[in-house]
């Protein structure tokens, strides 16, 4: 029982981070129907940003978080203007290749500039662990998960409670209609990239507290983010949150029941089952 409680708790913590990183992906998809295949590599860049803020400027990753979010948001806009906008008029295939190629480029540049070395942020404000009854929780993971909850809450507030958020959602719903209502959809696109990449930046900054940083780190979380988005429903931020936690818990518990090497297989199976029963995802619109 103790073991189950422990694994579920760890699964929830991991799931919240997955959810936050997936939220960024799903937002961009929702607003402009583009899958950002460089998503995991955005995460990698964010983690390096945190690392260098710590290594060079001596900034604790938690304090550097707003800066990392802003930097990634800005990077998102640059990518939108420099890479995405030119291929918007091209075929869907061109759009896929553009982000896919961008991902490979980012990984290659990271390996060239930062070398393939594994880096790790040393002791931070969030070091250590604490126990809740029989369950031991790592402070870094807990703070990262709480941070993910807060940022997700802010994202919800932005989308739900502000005029800009309404405009974003309107663009996602019906681009033409939104334009007729006087919404500058191009600005909304840029904003979606800024907010989406900013979410990834937040996830990266929180992960960097405890996870090793290397050029391929995006691969660890990238695929899971796609599955999270698809499971939750493309374009649904709430769905991504739900799916993230679900995947976190399912993989952890599966690792306990089956051989841990197969724990992701179970999560992918769950995804396949949902896909068959409910193709639009858990909270997606049909």
């Amino acid at each position: 029982m103790e073991i189950v409680a422990q694994t579920v708790a760890s699964g929830v913590l991991l799931g919240l981070i997955l959810a936050l990183s997936a939220a960024g992906l799903t937002l961009i998809w929702g607003v402009m129907d583009i899958v950002n295949f460089a998503h995991g590599d955005f995460l990698m860049l964010g983690m390096y940003a945190s690392f260098f803020a710590w290594a060079v400027l001596g900034l604790d990753p938690l304090l550097a978080l707003p800066g990392v979010v802003a930097a990634l948001g800005l990077f998102g806009v640059v990518v939108y203007l420099g890479v995405i906008r030119p291929v918007l008029r091209g075929s869907v295939l061109a759009q896929i290749f553009a982000t896919f190629g961008l991902g490979i480029l980012l990984r290659g540049v990271a390996q060239f500039v930062f070398t393939a070395d594994y880096r790790q942020i040393g002791d931070t404000m969030a070091t250590g662990s604490f126990a809740v009854g029989p369950v031991h929780l790592g402070l870094p993971q807990t703070i990262a998960a709480l941070g993910a909850l807060i940022v997700s809450g802010l994202l919800f507030a932005l989308l739900d409670r502000t005029t800009v958020g309404t405009a974003l959602r309107a663009t996602a719903e019906d681009r033409r209609a939104a334009e007729l209502m006087g919404i500058d959809t191009r600005r909304m696109f840029a904003l979606a990239w800024a907010v989406g990449a900013g979410c990834v930046g937040a996830a990266a900054g929180l992960l960097a507290i405890y996870f090793p940083i290397f050029p391929d780190v995006g691969a660890v979380f990238g695929l899971l983010a796609f599955v999270t988005v698809a499971l939750g429903g493309f374009g649904s931020v709430g769905g991504a949150m739900l799916a993230g936690v679900l995947i976190g818990v399912v993989t952890s518990v599966a690792g306990l029941i089956f051989d841990p090497a197969y724990k992701f297989t179970v999560a992918y199976l769950l995804y396949l089952v949902v896909l068959v029963i409910r193709p639009q995802g858990l909270l997606g619109r049909a």
Binding site: T7, V220, V253
Partner: peptide, 15 residues
């Protein structure tokens, strides 16, 4: 046994 890309090793360590 665990997958090299596992982002979390809690269940492994619990085993």
């Amino acid at each position: 046994g665990y997958k090299l890309t596992a982002p979390d090793l809690t269940s492994e360590i619990q085993r």
